[in-house]
Structures are given as structure tokens and as C-alpha cells.
């Protein structure tokens, strides 16, 4: 974790997108979801989701709009607690501990599960302060500039910003802003990184940079990424979960398997229909 990687700033193209490890059996389970239901008020948004997210893998969530991908993702760092009326039932175990147990503090827990949002949302502060924020609130005891530099390097942004750390983050380009948000999320050294369509607001080059980053980061963080881009899911993820929405608008998990399996030989015909674009 302490080793730093430089020279990632310029995207070195496709070979990266071949997943190095595809064997899934010897990995630990990071998040174990059991019969998860989520309600917004009386409306049931997600019903009966069970899955095991593996350590140091990239897991992709795909599925039509409104099927509850973001909702499930938000359960993993209890961001749903902030939505009035949202209710989560079922079981989510994080390294064997129940996330929704009474004694779990959502604040502390969130520092162990990072999140990157669809639209880049840097704070209107300096680049440095953006990255340092998560360190500060979580009482980092080490050397701040080093930690900021390390996070920026992990997010492959260091080379571009090392001379302008004091500048306002809003001056960065959209792609740089998103990598800054990734660096910010990495600073508290989370074990899991949740990414909700992290590249959907970006241009193709920036998207490529982010995908490359994901591929690299998963050596020491488990990543869950929501995406509407099939190719992206195929390129970056080891495992893929396909969600769908039934007639009463409740989302459910259709199939969860190795990405290669989902994209070449899915068990469920609805998955195949969706993958091949025959989905209504």
C-alpha cells in the first residue's frame, strides 16, 4: 500500500483492460449482502438482493435506469441514512460485521468505504484541502502533505497538479476533477471504493484514464462500479451484477457472476437480452 506509482498520468492504452486475475475462488468476501430490501417511504425500490462482493476485485452493477443500482450502492456506506424515509432491511456484512448493527457508527464506517459520484463534485476549496478533508475529519495522525501526495499519485493526478496544490479545485477540467474526487475518496485509505457512474459525465480520454485507474487501484481496494456502459463493465470489472426492475417498479438482482460469463454465456435470458441490446 505504501508503494507509489508514477508515470500513470499519460494513458498507456488497451492492454490494461485485460484482467489479470480471473480466478474467483481464493478471494475473501468483503461485503456479504443477504436479502436486502430498500424502501423509500412506502415505495419498495429494491427487493431481495443477496450477493457476495469479493476482495480486491472490481464488481460492476449494470441494469436499466431506475432498477436500484445506486440505491444498493448507497446501502454499502449507509448514505441512505441521510435520505428521509429511506429504510433498509436485510443484512449487509462488512468483513463479517453487520453494517446496520446498532453499535456501528455510520460516520466511522464511511471512512472505510469511499464513494465517487456521477458528477465530479470537488469542494470549492484548494486541491490540497480537498484531499486533506477526509484525513482531517478522520483524525489522520501521519504527515499530511505526504498523505495528500500519495493519494493524488494513486489517482494518477499528481503530475498534473503538483505545482498548483493551492489553487481552487473548480479550476480543474472535468476529468481532472473526477480524479481529484477519487484521490479525495482514497485519502482515508478505504477498503472499498463505491463508484456511481464515475465516467458518465466525462469525455472519452478522461473515461479511459479513469478505467485505467480502476484497473490499477483494485490491487489494494475492492471496487464496486455502477455503469450504463456495457463495454466499460466488460473492460474494467471481474464480476458483474445485472439488476432489473419488475412491474411494481421494485428492483431485483437477476444474475451475478464472472464478467466473462455474464458477457459471453449468461445463465438468464433477460441478461442476454439486455447485454445484446434487445432489451425493451
Amino acid at each position: 500500500m505504501t508503494e507509489t506509482r508514477e508515470g500513470l498520468d499519460a494513458p498507456t492504452v488497451p492492454k490494461l483492460f485485460v484482467n489479470e486475475h480471473t480466478a474467483s475462488d481464493e478471494s475473501n468476501t468483503v461485503i456479504d449482502v443477504n436479502k436486502l430490501d430498500v424502501h423509500y417511504g412506502t415505495f419498495c425500490a429494491v427487493r431481495g438482493v443477496s450477493m457476495k462482493i469479493k476482495e480486491n476485485r472490481v464488481t460492476a452493477f449494470i441494469g436499466p435506469s431506475g432498477c436500484g443500482k445506486s440505491t444498493v450502492l448507497r446501502c454499502f456506506n449507509r448514505m441512505n441514512d441521510l435520505i428521509p424515509g429511506a429504510r433498509v432491511t436485510g443484512e449487509i456484512n462488512f468483513f463479517g460485521q453487520d453494517l446496520y448493527a446498532a453499535e456501528v457508527d455510520p460516520t466511522e464506517m464511511r471512512s472505510r468505504v469511499g464513494m465517487v459520484f456521477q458528477k465530479p463534485n470537488p469542494f470549492p476549496k484548494s486541491i490540497y484541502d480537498n484531499v486533506a478533508f477526509g484525513l482531517k475529519v478522520n483524525g489522520y495522525t501521519g504527515n499530511y502533505p505526504d498523505a495528500v501526495e500519495r493519494s493524488l499519485k494513486r489517482a494518477a493526478l499528481w503530475g498534473e497538479v503538483k505545482d498548483r496544490l493551492k489553487e481552487n479545485a473548480l479550476q480543474l477540467s472535468g476529468g481532472q476533477q473526477q480524479r481529484l474526487c477519487i484521490a479525495r475518496a482514497l485519502a482515508p485509505e478505504p477498503e472499498v471504493l463505491l463508484m456511481d457512474e464515475p465516467a458518465s459525465a466525462l469525455d472519452p480520454i478522461s473515461t479511459l484514464a479513469i478505467e485505467q485507474l480502476i484497473n490499477d487501484l483494485c490491487k489494494d481496494v475492492s471496487i464496486i462500479i455502477v455503469t450504463h456502459n456495457m463495454q466499460q463493465a466488460a473492460r474494467v470489472s471481474h464480476e458483474t451484477a445485472f439488476f432489473m426492475v419488475n412491474d411494481d417498479r421494485a428492483g431485483y438482482l437477476v444474475e451475478f457472476d464472472d464478467t466473462s460469463k455474464i458477457f459471453t454465456n449468461p445463465n438468464d435470458e433477460r441478461t442476454e437480452a439486455y447485454i445484446t441490446g434487445r432489451f425493451s
Binding site: T107, R110, S111, G114, F117, F123, V137, A185, P188
Partner: peptide
């Protein structure tokens, strides 16, 4: 809201 969400997601109270 996205700014607040980002801060909460980092473990801020």
C-alpha cells in the same frame, strides 16, 4: 447536495 454527500461519504459528521 452533491458537495454535502461527498463530505458525508468521507466520514464527516
Amino acid at each position: 447536495r452533491s458537495l454535502k454527500q461527498a463530505a458525508y461519504a468521507l466520514g464527516a459528521t
